[in-house]
Amino acid sequence: MADQQDFNRRGRVIALVIAGTGVGWIAATAIGGALDWSQRLRALFDLAALGGFVWALWMVYGLWRDRQKDKD
């Protein structure tokens, strides 16, 4: 059984992953435009950001499942 502090900590980690992925993606897009990176390299950063967001979504799903299990 997880306690409320564990749920809160996991929620903060998820929020940091989402925020970090978003900021990193925006930074990579801006730097790529300024330095005239190839579309292939920009797509690599887009895929990395997509992976980060999918991972965060998977973490949210796991947190939701654990909260539902702990409800009873």
Rank of each mutant, 00 (worst) to 15 (best):
64 W>R: 15
5 Q>F: 05
52 G>A: 04
15 A>T: 07
16 L>F: 14
66 D>V: 03
71 K>N: 12
11 G>A: 14
58 W>N: 12
71 K>D: 09
25 W>K: 01
11 G>F: 11
59 M>T: 10
52 G>E: 01
3 D>A: 02
42 R>V: 06
44 L>W: 00
54 V>Y: 13
64 W>F: 13
5 Q>I: 04
52 G>C: 04
47 L>W: 05
9 R>S: 08
62 G>A: 11
67 R>W: 12
5 Q>M: 06
11 G>I: 00
3 D>H: 02
62 G>P: 06
68 Q>W: 10
24 G>K: 03
59 M>Q: 13
2 A>W: 07
57 L>T: 13
58 W>H: 11
72 D>I: 04
32 G>P: 03
13 V>M: 12
8 N>K: 14
66 D>P: 01
37 W>V: 01
32 G>V: 01
43 A>K: 04
37 W>Q: 03
52 G>P: 01
17 V>L: 15
38 S>F: 12
52 G>F: 01
49 A>N: 03
39 Q>L: 10
8 N>D: 12
71 K>P: 00
47 L>D: 02
32 G>I: 04
36 D>S: 15
22 G>F: 03
33 G>Y: 06
63 L>N: 10
50 L>A: 11
19 A>G: 05
34 A>M: 11
29 T>C: 07
24 G>T: 05
22 G>W: 03
53 F>T: 05
27 A>K: 02
57 L>I: 08
66 D>G: 08
23 V>I: 15
55 W>Q: 11
56 A>Q: 01
68 Q>Y: 10
32 G>Y: 04
5 Q>S: 14
58 W>Q: 10
66 D>R: 15
9 R>C: 00
44 L>D: 01
30 A>F: 11
51 G>V: 06
21 T>L: 01
20 G>T: 07
50 L>M: 11
47 L>G: 10
62 G>W: 03
